[in-house]
Amino acid sequence: MGDGARLLNVVDVEATCWAGTPPAGQVSEIIEIGLTVVDVVAGTRVSRHRLLVRPERSAVSPFCTELTGLTQAEVATGTSFAEACRRLATEHTAGTRGWASWGDYDRKQFLRQCAATGVAYPFGRRHINAKAVFATAFDLPRPVGMATALDIAGLPLEGRHHRGGDDAWNIAALVLRLVERRAWPGSR
């Protein structure tokens, strides 16, 4: 089995958000990308990465800081979205390696932001919605959030919920639980 099938990028993003409607002229933008590389054959989390991304068309709201712990001052030190996508492609072989996220939000946010900014989409076509796979594997009536899934799977929540790096790490643990159960696509 080659690297392309053996290794999987588990991605989670945090984006600017507001308690209600975004202020005039502001749009939701990625401010943090968490990425955990999983070896689905060995059943291990191989590496953990976190990219801070500087928003260009919005600011971090107090609601967003409360939810994620990220501040405007912190994300202002981040890289540009274009540079973050370049790093995903070059350092994490995002264009050729399969990837997973909890739900479809992360994939759609990248598509929206890439289209809006003219930045090349860094990922290939092999995306797996881990939330949907989990719901099927555990015979749930509907998909559940990551924290609930961790409880169902008997796994601890490590770190802070709604932090990209921590959430990607936790989602990777859920992916590995699905691999153990032979419920992950390709692990049967």
Score class of each variant (00 low, 15 high):
residue 1 M to E: 00
residue 4 G to V: 13
residue 4 G to H: 11
residue 4 G to M: 12
residue 6 R to K: 06
residue 7 L to N: 06
residue 9 N to P: 00
residue 10 V to N: 09
residue 10 V to L: 07
residue 11 V to R: 09
residue 11 V to G: 07
residue 14 E to W: 02
residue 15 A to P: 02
residue 16 T to F: 02
residue 20 G to D: 15
residue 20 G to I: 12
residue 21 T to W: 13
residue 21 T to G: 01
residue 22 P to Q: 00
residue 23 P to D: 04
residue 26 Q to E: 15
residue 27 V to W: 00
residue 28 S to M: 07
residue 28 S to K: 05
residue 29 E to G: 03
residue 29 E to L: 08
residue 33 I to P: 08
residue 34 G to F: 10
residue 35 L to N: 12
residue 36 T to I: 03
residue 36 T to H: 06
residue 38 V to F: 03
residue 40 V to H: 01
residue 41 V to P: 01
residue 44 T to S: 10
residue 45 R to C: 01
residue 49 H to C: 02
residue 50 R to A: 14
residue 52 L to W: 11
residue 52 L to Q: 06
residue 53 V to T: 09
residue 55 P to G: 11
residue 55 P to R: 04
residue 58 S to E: 10
residue 59 A to I: 11
residue 62 P to Y: 10
residue 62 P to T: 09
residue 62 P to G: 06
residue 68 T to Y: 08
residue 68 T to C: 09
residue 69 G to N: 11
residue 71 T to N: 05
residue 72 Q to C: 12
residue 73 A to F: 03
residue 75 V to T: 14
residue 77 T to R: 05
residue 84 A to C: 07
residue 84 A to R: 04
residue 85 C to M: 09
residue 91 E to M: 05
residue 92 H to T: 10
residue 97 R to F: 04
residue 102 W to F: 04
residue 106 D to P: 10
residue 109 Q to M: 12
residue 109 Q to V: 08
residue 112 R to L: 03
residue 112 R to A: 01
residue 115 A to M: 07
residue 116 A to F: 11
residue 117 T to V: 11
residue 117 T to P: 10
residue 120 A to F: 04
residue 120 A to P: 13
residue 124 G to N: 02
residue 125 R to H: 06
residue 129 N to A: 02
residue 130 A to E: 09
residue 133 V to R: 09
residue 134 F to K: 04
residue 135 A to R: 14
residue 139 D to P: 00
residue 143 P to K: 00
residue 145 G to R: 03
residue 154 G to D: 14
residue 156 P to G: 04
residue 158 E to S: 14
residue 161 H to S: 11
residue 162 H to I: 08
residue 164 G to E: 13
residue 165 G to H: 06
residue 165 G to V: 07
residue 167 D to P: 07
residue 169 W to T: 15
residue 170 N to D: 14
residue 170 N to P: 14
residue 174 L to T: 01
residue 178 L to V: 06
residue 180 E to N: 03
residue 182 R to A: 14
residue 185 P to L: 12
residue 188 R to S: 13
